[in-house]
C-alpha cells in the first residue's frame, strides 16, 4: 500500500481529542504526498485525511467545522503554532510532528 511518494509524519492528539481517535494519542502515518487535485499535501488535506481514514468517532464536527479545524483546537506544527506556519496551507514535510490540542475540555 505504501507508496514512495508518501510522507511519513507523526500525529498527536491531546486535551481530550484522543477520545475521537480511538483513545490513541500518537499515530505514525504515511500521508499521500499529493492531495486530490495533485497539489502538494498541506494541513487542510491532512485534516481531511484524518477525518476520513483515521477518526473512529462519527462526530466529525467535534474536530472539523466549516472545512477547517474547529475553533478552540490548537494545531502545533513541530511545536510551533500553525498560525506562524501558514495554517492549513502549510505543506506537510517528511518527519513533521503535527499536534492537535483541544482547549475545549474541562477538568
Amino acid at each position: 500500500m505504501s507508496n514512495e511518494d508518501d510522507v511519513p509524519i507523526t500525529i498527536e492528539f491531546s486535551g481530550g481529542l484522543e477520545i475521537l481517535f480511538g483513545d490513541q494519542k500518537k499515530y505514525s502515518l504515511l500521508l499521500p504526498a499529493k492531495d486530490e487535485s495533485g497539489a502538494p499535501a498541506n494541513v487542510a488535506f491532512l485534516v481531511r485525511h484524518l477525518c476520513d481514514k483515521v477518526m473512529k468517532d462519527p462526530r466529525k464536527e467535534l474536530f472539523v467545522l466549516d472545512d477547517t479545524v474547529r475553533p478552540g483546537i490548537l494545531v502545533l506544527i513541530n511545536e510551533a503554532d500553525w498560525e506562524l506556519e501558514g495554517e492549513d496551507k502549510y505543506e506537510v514535510q517528511k518527519d513533521d510532528h503535527i499536534m492537535f490540542v483541544s482547549t475545549l475540555h474541562g477538568g
Binding site: S14, G16, V101, H105, G106, G107
Partner: peptide, 13 residues
C-alpha cells in the same frame, strides 16, 4: 501546560 509538560487530565463530564 504543553510547553512545561504539566500533567493534567482532560475529559468531559
Amino acid at each position: 501546560a504543553h510547553h512545561k509538560h504539566l500533567d493534567y487530565f482532560s475529559t468531559e463530564c
